[in-house]
Amino acid sequence: MTIKAYLYDKCGTCRKAKQWFQQNGVAIEEIPIVDAPPAADELRRMWKASGLSLQKFFNTSGQFYRELGLKDKLGAMSEDEMLELLASNGKLIKRPLVSDGKSVTVGFKEEEYEQTWGKR
């Protein structure tokens, strides 16, 4: 299956991830996360496949996250509410978000990329 990489051009971490894929000869489908964030049902599939807590999908260092005061609100929100919120604004999603339908990585850690995407 195609590796979908949700990226943001102005994000340094996204540029590092994109460079890693290029250097390792791994083809990806680039999707602009701000213009075309994944839908709630797609986010649910990625979250379940990732094995991470749903909170790990939030870009906690983002301005929009802080403006909405989500640090104090996430604990009281349902999974559906969190997924709908993430789907409503790509800047709320921690990036890069990469998935091939089975494996998912959130953020960029070279060792994790090597382990997950390097054996292609």
Rank of each mutant, 00 (worst) to 15 (best):
Q55L: 10
E30Y: 08
E81D: 14
E81C: 09
Q115Y: 14
D41E: 15
N59S: 09
S50Y: 03
Y65T: 09
L83C: 03
K56C: 08
A36R: 15
G107P: 03
V104F: 10
R45G: 02
L83V: 05
S103H: 15
I93E: 05
D72I: 04
V104Y: 01
K94A: 01
I93M: 06
E29L: 13
P38F: 02
R15C: 01
D35V: 12
P38D: 07
A36D: 15
R66H: 10
L74N: 06
D35P: 00
A40V: 03
S53Y: 09
S53I: 05
S99I: 07
M77F: 13
M46R: 07
S88E: 13
W20T: 08
L74S: 02
A49M: 05
D80K: 10
L85E: 02
F58V: 09
E84M: 09
K56H: 13
L52H: 08
E81W: 08
Q55W: 14
K109E: 03
L83P: 00
Y65R: 02
A40E: 04
D41M: 06
T105P: 05
N24E: 09
D35A: 15
Q55Y: 15
E114K: 12
M46F: 15
S103Q: 15
Y65W: 07
G69Q: 10
F58N: 03
E79G: 09
Y65N: 00
G107T: 02
K73A: 11
R66M: 02
Q23P: 08
K94P: 01
D72L: 12
G101K: 03
G101Q: 10
P32D: 11
L97S: 00
F21M: 05
A39T: 13
T105W: 01
K16A: 12
E84I: 08
A87P: 06
V106N: 00
T13V: 09
D100Q: 13
R44T: 10
S78C: 14
K71E: 12
M77C: 02
N59L: 04
F57M: 07
G101R: 03
T105S: 10
T13A: 06
K94L: 05
I33L: 12
L85V: 06
D41R: 11
C14H: 03
L97V: 04
V26P: 01
A27D: 15
P32E: 11
Q22F: 08
F108H: 05
D72M: 12
S103M: 11
I28D: 07
D72F: 10
A49I: 09
E84Q: 14
Q23K: 12
L74R: 02
V104I: 14
G25L: 06
T13G: 07
G51I: 10
A87V: 04
Q22N: 12
N89S: 15
K109S: 12
A27M: 10
D72T: 11
